[in-house]
Design a protein around this nucleic acid. Structure first.
Lengths: 93, 93
DNA sequence: TAAATTTGGTTTATAAAATAAACCAGTTTA
DNA sequence: TAAACTGGTTTATTTTATAAACCAAATTTA
């Protein structure tokens, strides 16, 4: 009947992050922060979980002498997101 | 950009319950239990939350001498579910 | 040039939610 | 009448989300 949903995506913030990365592929921490409206702390935690799941990579570098965190969606992440969408459809016919 | 999602529906079990009730309108506790595969305890908690939110009513009666709990979706519940679907679409374009 | 402020985050602490396990009242079966 | 089953609820534990505090380094202000 209903497909099991990937619990990683049953979070508005994580869903927003991946949904945005589906479009832009890579984003800076600050860009994700303003795009999603999340607090820095919450965003830090949630990108960590997405990285653990293998759905994005986190690259730490510098820009204009300041630390810069870059998030890039992975192929695994793209597939997981698309699967989630398919599964979700079963709840709305 | 992304619409805020109703957190009530960011739960597979609650989503399953309401999605099923969208079709059948009313269901017995046991039917919901087998439909969703949930444990009785979890189901009891989650229908309670859906009732608090005004999305379903819980009616306690008897059938063949045994207690029977009936859940019926409300108009508010139907609208909330439809709104959730609309909002969700913004995450998948 | 030293104190204050800002940047770009991380870590810790608290509150809320999900889940499992224990429990309970009543009914039926052996 | 004791054991087992029905139809759940309640309690306890774990997980998750969120907010608040914190931190190092860079920059600005006085």
């Amino acid at each position: 009947m209903f497909k099991d949903l990937n619990p990683i995506f049953l979070s508005q913030l994580r869903l927003s992050i991946i949904s945005h990365l589906m479009v832009v592929r890579q984003a800076e921490f600050g860009a994700l922060k303003s795009q999603t409206g999340a607090s820095a702390g919450n965003l830090s935690i949630q990108i960590g979980k997405l990285q653990e799941a293998g759905y994005l990579t986190i690259e730490k570098t510098y820009k204009n002498n300041y630390p810069l965190t870059l998030c890039t969606i992975t192929e695994v992440g793209i597939e997981a997101f698309e699967d989630f969408y398919k599964d979700l459809k079963t709840y709305f016919e």
